[in-house]
């Protein structure tokens, strides 16, 4: 369960979030809003990439402001551009990179990496140069690098912006099958099939918070 209580934040003079109170026990949650609405900042607070200026965030009882490292093990994060996240030359090595410091042997890390790649549609790609994968495959790789640690929560910040329509659909379907609690930040309203809850942000405030249908109706009206 993710809880925001009285959360506010500013970058310099610009207020990016104010008075956010949310309790999110649902398995599939989306943050929707225009550019600069504060949705990405809110999502980053879930694993402590941004700490709230005011108020408090709790993720399954963990406070990112106090236990940053623990929270980041508990919450995986997928970014818009997978190139930011891919550190190692091959797909297998990159997934295994996530497992350094777990005490597993090198062979065991490689085996686990190959397993996870196989499970999410990159079977046989362990030896493949990571940067020669297609855009869709790279985003899958970024996802695998997070899932290999088996986090309880997965936050995705506009993960499909750089993907084509087919890969976008596949990524969305995949998100649907995960056992993790998923928080998705997106502009892409097609991705929200099967979501339990949609939070609409505007100017740093929550302006709608509902099931997808009514929330999105509100968001479309806001955009007009």
């Amino acid at each position: 369960m993710i809880e925001f209580s009285g959360v506010g934040h500013r970058f310099g003079d610009r207020v990016v979030l104010s008075d956010v109170d949310l309790t999110l026990p649902e398995r599939r949650v989306a943050f929707v809003g225009a550019n600069g609405s504060g949705k990405s900042t809110l999502a980053r607070m879930i694993n402590g990439l941004v700490l709230p200026g005011e108020g408090r965030v709790l993720v399954d009882g963990l406070d990112p402001a106090k236990d940053g490292r623990k929270v980041r093990k508990h919450v995986g994060f997928v970014f818009t551009n997978p190139d930011s996240q891919i550190v190692m030359p091959t797909a297998g090595e990159d997934v295994a990179f996530s497992l350094r410091g777990t005490g597993l042997s090198k062979a065991e890390r490689a085996r686990r990496a190959a397993e996870v790649l196989a499970e999410y549609g990159l079977d046989g790609y362990a030896e493949h140069p990571a940067h020669q994968l297609s855009g869709g495959q790279k985003q899958l790789l970024a996802l695998c690098a997070m899932l290999v640690l088996d986090p309880a929560v997965l936050v995705c910040d506009e993960p499909t912006t750089l993907l084509d329509l087919r890969n976008k659909r596949r990524f969305a379907e995949l998100l649907g099958t995960l056992r993790q609690q998923v928080v998705l930040v997106t502009h892409d309203l097609d991705l929200l099939d099967g979501f339990d809850r949609v939070v609409v942000l505007d100017g740093g405030r929550v302006v709608a918070d509902d099931e997808p249908e009514p929330a999105l109706r509100y968001y479309r009206k806001l955009a007009e």
Partner: peptide, 22 residues
């Protein structure tokens, strides 16, 4: 930020390699 999310904020490689690739 991405390096931090991977728990690698102290790793030079995790910063420098993606930075150079991009």
């Amino acid at each position: 930020e991405a390096a931090k999310a991977r728990g690698a904020e102290r790793s030079v490689t995790a910063f420098a390699v993606p930075f150079l690739v991009r």
